[in-house]
């Protein structure tokens, strides 16, 4: 019965991946690499409308509802933010709105990057996560 590709599973994979790094430098270097590998958002999707505003760094987030799943693409102008964006997209992308809404996100805490989701960081990530959930909520009422 276990869904090998559940959101919870994807979170666990991220946690295991980050457990390999013992010091901050390796952890952040990995995060920066993940940001570099983030699939590029289509230029025409980097619109004013899709900007999630933070006062320090900016995030672009686009969502589409295809075959019952929510498809996210995103980008950021700062590399660490982009790495975190890549993680959020990896975990939440192509899932049903219900799964996105019902699964608590624990991996950010578990990999020691909680500070980036504090309101003080004003990097657009908190707003991005809220926005992802809002899309899921909007699509869930359609499906």
């Amino acid at each position: 019965m276990t869904d090998m590709n559940s959101l919870a599973q994807a979170q666990q994979e991220v946690v295991d991946e980050f457990a390999m790094f013992s010091d901050w430098q390796d952890r952040y270097e990995h995060l920066i690499e993940l940001g570099k590998d983030l699939p590029v958002i289509a230029p025409e999707k980097k619109t004013e409308e899709n900007i999630v505003r933070g006062c320090q760094s900016r995030v672009w987030l686009n969502a589409e509802h295809k075959n019952g799943l929510v498809h996210f693409t995103a980008d950021s102008d700062a590399m660490i933010t982009k790495g975190l964006v890549a993680l959020l997209v990896r975990v939440l992308n192509d899932r049903t709105p219900q799964e996105i809404l019902n699964t608590p996100l624990t991996f950010i805490d578990a990999i020691g990057l909680r500070e980036h989701l504090s309101p003080n960081r004003s990097n657009g990530l908190v707003a991005m996560l809220d926005q992802m959930k809002r899309y899921a909520l909007a699509y869930s009422s359609k499906s």
Binding site: W24, Q25, Y28, Q56, S57, D77, A78, M79, I80, T81, H116, N123
Partner: peptide
């Protein structure tokens, strides 16, 4: 180099 990244890595 984005200032947010620099500030974060200095904080570390």
């Amino acid at each position: 180099v984005h200032h947010y990244d620099l500030g974060t890595l200095l904080d570390q």
